[in-house]
């Protein structure tokens, strides 16, 4: 009996702490739990992101060929060397030309596809899937199709076959920089591969435009079609367009796969990352110069991102309506 009363007596006493425990647990363990949850990620982030960056900045001031633990400090020589290298500066020109083609065309095509898919009702899901499907294909596989079948420079490539029906001679699409047909190959490849992805973003944005706006516009006498598009749809898509353009630019800056596979052995059309690869992992294995190049490219992309973000008010939040 006495034991039970003891327990009964004891019960109410811990009852209070028991009620408080979740609270104390919340506060008291929070810090520990925070590190438990974020710890693995943060350690990885430090080891595999921050350390390599720091190491790379360090290497960029040293003579480091075939070695990652160099001894001779050479100051800014690596930076000078890589900026004097016409291949490297040329790659920045390549990027500029590439971006000038791919950004507007992808923007226009993905917006156009989104408008089409948005308006049709019959087989809507089917068409959306068709335009979206290429997103699943790798740049390597696409490059293979483009190089080996679609734009094969020989007679049996699809493009040359079609041209031959009109009596046009074979075009060496990739093997000849003059005229620079290789741009057509590269731009169409990326267009095909990424337009569907941005179409999805535009579709989501289109569905967010309130129907009342169109009603109001038609009451005000706006004709459906170009007028409504110009004065309602386009301004309403501004935030999405801004984001899409920024993403396209960053993606173009990082282009590697299709250039490598289409023009790997060529001396023309080499974008920044391909040049970087050749410097750091090519014959010379010059990690010092490669690191300097990586630092320069990182700074450039930071400037582009920040500048464009400022210019277009992107990243300020609250831009989705």
């Amino acid at each position: 009996m006495s034991t039970t009363t003891e327990i009964d007596l004891a019960n109410p006493a811990p009852a209070k702490p028991a009620q408080a425990r979740p609270r104390r647990g919340l506060r008291g363990n929070a810090t520990l739990n925070f590190w438990l949850f974020t710890g693995p990620f943060l350690i990885g982030l430090i080891v595999f992101v921050f350390v390599p960056m720091g190491w790379s900045i360090y290497l960029s001031f040293f003579e480091a060929r075939f070695t990652v633990s160099p001894s001779s400090f050479i100051g800014l020589d690596n930076y000078k060397a890589i900026l004097d290298n016409p291949d490297f500066t040329g790659s920045l020109v390549t990027f500029t030309v590439f971006a000038a083609f791919i950004v507007p065309t992808t923007w226009a095509l993905s917006l156009g596809l989104a408008l089409l898919v948005h308006r049709i009702r019959f087989m809507k899901a089917f068409f959306r899937s068709v335009f979206f499907l290429p997103t699943a294909v790798s740049y390597v596989a696409a490059a293979l199709v483009w190089k080996m079948s679609m734009f094969n420079g020989v007679r049996f490539g699809l493009a040359n076959t079609i041209l031959s029906w009109f009596g046009v001679d074979n075009v060496a699409w990739l093997a000849n920089p003059d005229p620079p047909w290789y741009w057509l190959v590269i731009v169409t490849l990326r267009l095909w591969l990424q337009a569907g992805f941005y179409m999805i973003l535009f579709l989501a944005a289109l569905q967010n435009i309130p129907a009342e706006l169109y009603e109001a516009a038609s009451i005000d006498g706006a004709r459906p079609g170009w007028q409504t598009f110009r004065y309602i749809t386009l301004p309403q898509l501004r935030a999405t367009s801004t984001a899409v353009i920024l993403l396209l630019l960053i993606a173009a800056y990082q282009a590697f796969d299709e250039f490598w596979n289409l023009l790997g052995k060529a001396t023309w059309g080499q974008p920044p990352l391909v040049e970087l690869y050749k410097t750091a992992l090519g014959e010379n294995q010059d990690y010092g110069q490669g690191s300097a190049g990586a630092v320069i490219l990182t700074l450039l992309i930071l400037i582009i991102t920040l500048f464009q973000g400022k210019l277009m008010g992107f990243g300020r939040g609250e831009e989705s309506k």
Binding site: V49, Q254, L273, L276, A280, S291, A294, I301, L302
Partner: peptide, 27 residues
């Protein structure tokens, strides 16, 4: 503050840092 540390890494596209990453992984 920790979150800002994560955000900083978002500014730098991963592909651009393949040289430093390779240096680390090879060592």
């Amino acid at each position: 503050k920790v979150f800002y540390g994560v955000l900083v890494t978002l500014m730098i596209p991963t592909a651009v840092t393949f040289v430093p990453s390779f240096v680390l992984v090879s060592s």
